[in-house]
Structure formats: structure tokens, C-alpha cells
Design a binder for these strands. Structure first.
Lengths: 123, 123
DNA sequence: CAGTATATCGTACAGTTGTACAAGATGCCA
DNA sequence: TGGCATCTTGTACAACTGTACGATATACTG
């Protein structure tokens, strides 16, 4: 089955989809509840974002009672691939090393984490 | 001197600013020339992007002959901090580890690179 | 100096994004 | 069954983005 090219996802939409991946599935309400406290955003807005994500083909929903339960349909791995690659291209001209460096220096990364990376690379 | 909060920068603008950092300074033409071959984008568009970057306070220019020579004024480190942190928040809920994993697995990272990271973290 | 190539400036414009209200539908409790 | 609490749907709308044309200004070249 072809990973048919999904239309671009906006930052706010990305944020919501990321929550959905974390929750597995969720209603509008549940999604709102999991938003970081900082992020003050109206119920109706989350709803719009979910609606758009569905139109774009990233998620779907089933109806349960009177509410919709949304769930991801796009593969996380695929979306991450596209997003990261796009991000690295724009901000680092395509070279991921500086990003790794930045993360290592400011990203609360432990030595153990690095060991784990070594294992991944070695493979 | 306060790093006064610059207005958000769009992806396309980010791309251009990244080029400017790479070149040090550049005219519209030179910027166009350094765009990846894939990225087909009109001279006038690059010009608009530079104009907007300047209005937003990320770059400035001096006039040389009849052309403008643009140069960054925002600190690369600061912009990267904001962008990366924003990106990680949206796509990974704030946890940078999965991003590192992804890069290690798909980012053409060598074992040597990892050693370098270890050094950075160890510090 | 006149023409040509090259720049900038002003402007445009459709599509996307972020944000959200109002109205109508629906399920549940007393 | 009537009403309250919830939901969804339709719609809105200003700001931002990506993209770019046309007019005008400016420097070099013969």
C-alpha cells in the first residue's frame, strides 16, 4: 500500500497528532486535557485541528456515544522522517551533525543515552 | 542588551537565513545561486524573503553599488535554540531522546561522531 | 550619452494557519 | 419526557506564507 503523499501538516496540527500518538486514541476533550498547561488553546480550536488532520488523511475517527474518538492512521515513523528531514534541511542545510551537537550540549542528554546511540549506529 | 523577542520566522525564511549564515553575507543573486538545485524559486521570491527577514529584525543590509548585501544580525545559536526547542516540543512532546535515536539510525552518523558527542556531554 | 542588464520597491493574491463563536444534534439523568 | 450538559458542524476571519509580476531606479558599456 503506497504511502500516498499526505498534504503538509502545520505545526499546530503536528502538536496534536503527536498527542494522539501518545494517547493511542482520544476524544477532543481528552486531547485538550493532555495539552501542556502552558498551551492555552480552546476546545473548539483543538476540534478544528483534529478535523483538518482528518481531512488531510493523518487520522480517522469512529463514533462512540455522541463523541468522536480520533486515532492516528499515518505511520509515526513516516511523519517523523519527513518532518525531521525537512527541519534539518531548512535550519542546518541538510547536515544533521550540528543538530546532534546542539542536542548533546543542551538537550539534557546523559552519557548512557550516548551509549545507546552508539549501539544504534553500530548496527 | 536584551535579545528582544523577534517575531516568528517562517520555514522559507529560515531556509534563507541559514544560507546567509553559511555565506556570511550575500546579495539576492548570491543567495539564489546557493539554493539547492532542487529548490526552484524565483529571484523575486528570495528578495521578498530577505525583505521580510529584515523587517522582522533577523538580518540587515548595506548598499554596495546598486545592490544590497544582506547579513545576519540575529545570533545563530539563539535562533537554533528556539527552533529546535519548538520543533522537539511539537513533534516529540519535548523529549529530545527520540530525535537523537532517529538521527543515529537514519542520519548518516558515524561512530566517530558519537564519540564526539560523548565528549560534549561529558563536559 | 543612450541603451542594456540588473536591482529594488510596491503591490498582489490565493492558500494556509491559528483561533474560535454560534447553532443545531444527541445522549443521559431526574 | 424534558432539560442540561456535551458534541459536532458550519462558518468566519485576520494574519501569515509562498510565490511572483510590473514599474522604476541605477550602474556599466560602447
Amino acid at each position: 500500500m503506497a504511502k500516498s503523499k499526505l498534504p503538509r501538516m502545520s505545526p499546530a496540527e503536528t502538536e496534536i497528532l503527536q498527542l494522539l500518538w501518545q494517547l493511542g486514541e482520544a476524544t477532543v476533550q481528552q486531547t485538550c486535557d493532555r495539552l501542556p498547561r502552558r498551551r492555552k488553546i480552546a476546545y473548539a480550536t483543538v476540534q478544528t485541528l483534529l478535523r483538518r488532520l482528518e481531512n488531510k488523511g493523518y487520522i480517522t475517527h469512529r463514533t462512540e456515544g455522541k463523541a468522536h474518538v480520533f486515532l492516528p492512521v499515518a505511520k509515526r515513523e513516516d511523519v517523523i522522517k519527513r518532518s525531521v528531514s525537512d527541519f534539518v534541511n531548512r535550519l542546518f542545510g541538510g547536515d544533521p551533525i550540528p543538530l546532534m551537537h546542539y542536542l548533546a550540549e543542551h538537550g539534557k542528554i546523559s552519557a548512557d543515552d550516548i551509549e545507546e546511540l552508539k549501539r544504534l549506529v553500530g548496527k
